[in-house]
């Protein structure tokens, strides 16, 4: 792979990290989806448990653990991979501007004949590639294990769910990148994005128990990704558009400020 440009260079420099996250996300996906056959066997007991404690089940995001869609939607897609992918994307987005700026690497690149727009837009593009790779990993693992685990979920539905997961990560990664682009501070980027990710996750789970907190879910990419139940319904055009619009808006905000401010002071 040639180190042609800022975009390729940044991906190449991060390739160990990218590979590590792909392995991690793939392993978690494989591990939890392979519990499905034993889960299916104890389906009756689980259903009874959930009927007794509906609020706990709802707050944990467990909808229906007796079907493959319900099980995967509650575990792999409802909790584990969105959180892992978000953490990975926040780390990536933080390093993309604020991290490199504090290190001083950005100064060297920007002293070359490149515009700030070019640098930051390519970093956003690299983030998009990164979350796409993680989403693709989840999809490949499930497609590969599907027949053996008897999941019986169409490949397209799995793709829709993996896409939704990747987009959750894209939102938070873009948030970290944008905060970094605006402030130049690694701590703000990682802290701000992590806090909002926690708020977003809780907003779509525990906050649902409180009617007065229900508005929180509209601030949550988890809501837009998970509520349409992509494993059952496929891609929801409207909610997917929201999940794409959030990172694009963040990119625009971050770029506008980054092009004007002082780098590294």
């Amino acid at each position: 792979m040639p180190v042609r440009d800022i975009f390729g260079k940044f991906l190449m420099d991060s390739r160990r990290g990218i590979l590590g996250w792909m392995i991690g996300v793939g392993a978690v996906t494989a591990l939890y989806s392979s519990f499905w056959p034993s889960m299916e066997a104890s389906g009756e007991a689980m259903r009874a448990f959930m009927e007794q404690m509906p609020r706990l089940a709802e707050s944990m995001g467990w909808s229906d653990l007796s079907t493959a869609e319900g099980y995967l939607g509650s575990t792999v897609f409802g909790l584990l991979t969105p959180i892992l992918v978000s953490i990975a994307a926040i780390a990536f987005g933080t390093r993309a501007v604020a991290g490199e700026e504090e290190e001083g690497a950005l100064e060297l690149v920007l002293s070359h004949p490149v515009s700030r727009y070019r640098v930051i837009l390519q970093r956003f593009a690299a983030l998009a590639v990164f979350v796409a790779l993680l989403g693709a990993t989840i999809w490949v693992v499930l497609v590969a294990l599907g027949p053996a685990l008897d999941l019986g979920i169409p490949v397209g539905r799995l793709a829709a769910a993996a896409l939704a997961t990747a987009l959750i990560g894209f939102c938070y990664g873009a948030l970290a990148l944008a905060i970094g682009a605006i402030t130049g501070r690694r701590a703000y980027a990682i802290g701000g994005a992590a806090v909002l990710a926690v708020v977003g996750y809780l907003g779509n789970t525990f906050a649902l128990q409180q009617e007065e907190l229900e508005w929180m879910r509209f601030l949550s990419p988890f809501y837009y990704a998970l509520d349409p139940e992509p494993l059952i319904n496929g891609i929801d055009a409207g909610y997917t558009a929201v999940l794409v619009a959030i990172p694009l808006a963040l990119a625009a905000l971050g770029t506008a400020r980054f092009a004007r401010r002082d780098v590294l002071v």
């Binding site: 260079k9 100064e107 490149v114």
Partner: peptide
């Protein structure tokens, strides 16, 4: 331009960094 502080954290060889910077030009 030679910056006052040179951050060089890459595991890649110097030649690759210089080629990359040259491509930016």
């Amino acid at each position: 331009y030679l910056p006052g502080e040179l951050p060089m954290t890459s595991r890649r060889p110097a030649r690759e960094l210089l080629t990359f910077l040259g491509r930016l030009r």
